[in-house]
């Protein structure tokens, strides 16, 4: 019995040493990581797309962990030319620039058009319908002012540890941005 007790206490002792050295290791780790933290004090990040790097590949529609994707087309009205024939709204070979189905580019009709006054039209994105396929973005960028572009919508985004779209983005357009400035809008209005 005595030897057993001695054995036990010796084991306990060794375990204690192990425990506190591991605790010290974790403390050191925390401090090391903490040192890095002081430089970027209080900065928290969210994912966002840089529209200048976006290649409109269409993967945002399929790669997001959410379905439909948390990436949506966003319209910067300040950059828009309010055209009648819109490169983002209409098929490239459209003859009569109206809202007929055969002329629409958007597969889900998420892009809406509203007449304002001759000859100007306002275009709006219905985010409930938008799937983030970037077709209109490509059209607007190719033929228009580039006022349509993709952005991660933060009311939908789960802000994953590693963004599934970022892992597949060919243009490396995804980057973390500060939570205080969570969008990268064209036309400079946040």
């Amino acid at each position: 019995m005595k030897t057993l007790n001695q054995n036990l206490t010796r084991r306990e002792f060794l375990r204690g040493i192990g425990r506190y050295s591991l605790l010290g290791l974790l403390g050191w780790l925390g401090l090391t990581l903490g040192r890095g933290l002081r430089r970027g004090k209080g900065t928290e990040y969210v994912w966002q797309i840089d529209p200048e790097k976006c290649t409109q590949c269409g993967r945002c529609a399929t790669a997001c962990v959410l379905s439909p994707s948390a990436v949506k087309c966003v319209h910067a009205y300040v950059v828009c030319g309010y055209c009648n024939l819109c490169g983002g709204y209409h098929q490239p070979n459209t003859k009569t620039p109206d809202t007929a189905a055969e002329n629409q580019l958007c597969p889900t009709a998420a892009l809406r058009r509203r007449f304002i006054e001759e000859p100007y039209y306002q275009y709006d994105v219905d985010e409930a319908l938008c799937i983030g396929c970037a077709k209109c973005v490509k059209g607007c960028g190719s033929f228009g002012n580039g006022s349509l572009f993709l952005q991660v919508r933060h009311d939908r985004c789960a802000n994953c540890n590693e963004c599934a779209i970022a892992a597949q983005c060919p243009g490396e357009a995804f980057a973390r941005v500060r939570r205080s400035r969570p969008y990268r809008l064209r036309g400079g209005v946040a």
Binding site: Y183, R184, V189
Partner: peptide
């Protein structure tokens, strides 16, 4: 940041149209 605001002025609307702001829901 994005590119500087476009210098090109928007059309002069005569019907008193007010340009909407691009909406951006805030993150958590």
């Amino acid at each position: 940041g994005a590119e500087p605001p476009s210098r090109f002025p928007k059309p002069e609307f005569e019907t008193g149209y007010v340009q909407p702001l691009t909406q951006c829901p805030a993150p958590r």
